[in-house]
Nucleic acid binder design. Structure first.
Lengths: 107, 107
DNA sequence: TCCATATTTCCAATATATTGGAAATATGGA
DNA sequence: TCCATATTTCCAATATATTGGAAATATGGA
């Protein structure tokens, strides 16, 4: 299956989008599953299910560290997704500027 | 519901992504439902169902023209979606450049 | 008004996704 | 080895999405 469809489907769900958002804000280091469950108030089993989806879509990376499993956002996939969508938005015709400035601070 | 979740869900489906892609390539003028059905080889009822999803997600605009209903991509929503995803990708931390250049020709 | 064509709605069958409790598994430390 | 803790897997209930044929609706032209 198209990687983009998988990624879009992974993000098109409230709980998973919240997980991903939090992981993006957290940065490279990521968070252990328990932390995610606590901060987002999601039952363990449910969180585990959604994390599996995100990992399978390659939007999230899991790494074991002792008894904990740390999850972190995979920025590379996210950028590929943005690239894909941009092509599908702009391909063949002008489209208004998207205004991306990752280096600037946002409020 | 969050507009982004709706838009992501709308695009996270093979048939709908194909419809949207074709409409983007077609540009402002759009295509009548019959044309879409023929070009993508989708049964009328199925196409109608997916178009409804896309319109409801505001990714596609419908306009009646005589006996035909023309469907066209809504670039404005698509750009909002890209903006939303970019924020959620970059928010609070550096992320690699997304390389968007809508004005350039792509192959 | 009547017909042909475009498109949608209805509907029922089917497939896929989501939820969360309980049990299973894995790990580090004592 | 044994225990406590972290996390996943299992599973069954439930909700949502997808499919496409047939019938319904809408429109322009004769």
């Amino acid at each position: 299956m198209n990687f983009a469809i998988k990624a879009l489907a992974a993000l098109a769900q409230e709980t998973r989008l919240a997980i991903f958002k939090l992981l993006v804000q957290t940065g490279e280091s990521g968070l252990p599953a328990g932390q995610l469950a606590k901060q987002l108030d999601i039952p363990n089993a449910t969180l585990s299910f959604h994390l599996k989806e995100l990992v399978s879509a390659q939007l999230v990376i899991a790494r074991q560290e002792g008894r904990f499993i740390y999850y972190s956002a995979n920025f590379s996939t996210m950028n590929s997704l943005l690239g894909f969508l941009t092509e599908n938005c702009c391909a063949g015709n002008p489209c208004s500027p998207v205004d991306i400035d990752c280096d600037e601070t946002r409020n």
